[in-house]
């Protein structure tokens, strides 16, 4: 007996052991109804395996997955009612857009109702009237939206997206990101998506689970991850971070740290009259501000985000921190 929980999608100590010795998990995560959770991590961190465990394409070697308190751990994908948008969309090339979107609706309703459902799903992604188009005639962005419409049409309980934007060119990515979030929020569906890009995770996710080498490092809102990372990995993987050791760490006010390591975001460093001494080696102008690469006396390099005219290359400076992250 598991106690009723407020979480809609529950992942309890789920585990996958590959034959080559790689182990993913055990990972425990609770996802609320209507929440968008990002699985963020470098390649090989196990985020795609996590998604495939949720979808049922991989069998778990331990642990439990439940939706609305119903155990689905051993329910095959076809009966799990989880919608999935694949990285390369996996649109059926031999079917047109309408038949792709209607694929998950077959058998459940009569034909007129199916056609209405297809039209509704396509309208949702702003592709009304595209039913008889061939898949290969569509642009990458349109294909992505068809994949989304297809996954949403059977009204799944959970939506899963595997690197949903990685196949789009950068110019299109940001706009699509906002559209995608708007559609998901309009449908109000519990969503889990995989990404290796921090910006995408921040923009699209309500909450982010950071994975590394098969382990869950931290789960939290973007603010929490950025301001209060649980450990050094999260601190350096999420956002720009300068890592200071030894004397420099001490000079920045990290004397009380356990391991003598201090992390400071570039915008939390400023040039002053005391602190860590060093020489400005590079200046990268970004418009509103500039990144200064400073080489400390211990030859460690770090970045300071400051006013464009705050320092010159070759200048000897002292750097102090306005906020440090330490454990």
């Amino acid at each position: 007996m598991t106690p009723p929980s407020t979480a809609f999608l529950q992942v309890q100590a789920i585990e996958k052991r590959w034959s080559d010795g790689v182990v993913i998990g055990p990972i425990t995560l609770d996802i609320a109804r209507g929440e968008i959770l990002a699985l963020l991590g470098p390649s090989g961190s196990g985020k795609t395996t996590m998604l495939r465990l949720l979808a049922g394409f991989e069998g778990a070697d331990g642990g439990r997955i439940a939706v609305a308190d119903e155990d689905v751990t051993s329910v095959p994908p076809a009966r799990r009612r989880f919608g999935m948008v694949f990285q390369h969309y996996a649109l059926f090339p031999h079917l047109d857009v309408g038949d792709n979107v209607g694929f998950g609706l077959a058998g459940s309703r009569e034909r007129g109702a199916v056609a209405t459902k297809i039209a509704q799903a396509l309208t949702l992604v702003d592709l009304a009237g595209f039913e008889r188009r061939k898949v290969h005639e569509l642009s990458g962005g349109q294909q992505q939206r068809v994949a989304l419409a297809r996954a949403l049409a059977p009204e799944p309980r959970v939506l899963l997206l595997d690197e949903p934007l990685s196949n789009l060119d950068p110019a299109l990515r940001e706009r699509t990101r906002h559209e995608l979030r708007a559609v998901i929020k309009r449908v109000d569906i519990t969503t889990v998506f995989v990404t290796h890009e921090q910006e995408e995770a921040f923009d699209l996710g309500d909450r982010i689970a950071v994975l590394n080498q098969g382990r869950l490092e931290q789960a939290g809102t973007p603010d929490e991850l950025y301001e209060r990372p649980a450990n050094l990995f999260v601190a350096t993987f999420v956002g720009r971070a300068n890592v200071f050791h030894g004397a420099a760490a001490k000079a920045l006010g990290g004397a009380a740290t356990r391991n003598g390591v201090v992390v400071v975001r570039p915008e939390r460093l400023r040039f002053g009259h005391a602190g860590v001494p060093g020489i400005v080696r590079e200046r990268r102008y970004t418009g509103a501000a500039a990144f200064f690469v400073v080489e400390g006396d211990d030859h460690e390099r770090f970045e300071v985000l400051a006013e464009p005219d705050a320092a010159q290359v070759g200048e000897r400076v002292y750097v102090e921190a306005t906020r440090v992250i330490a454990w």
Partner: peptide, 29 residues
């Protein structure tokens, strides 16, 4: 044949035979 096509069919509720008849076989054609 991209295995994701068969997985997509499964995630849309198609059983083994429907996946084979509607997705695999047309792709092997």
């Amino acid at each position: 044949l991209d295995p994701a096509l068969e997985e997509a069919a499964a995630s849309l509720g198609a059983g083994r035979w429907r996946t084979f008849a509607r997705v695999t076989l047309p792709q092997l054609r």
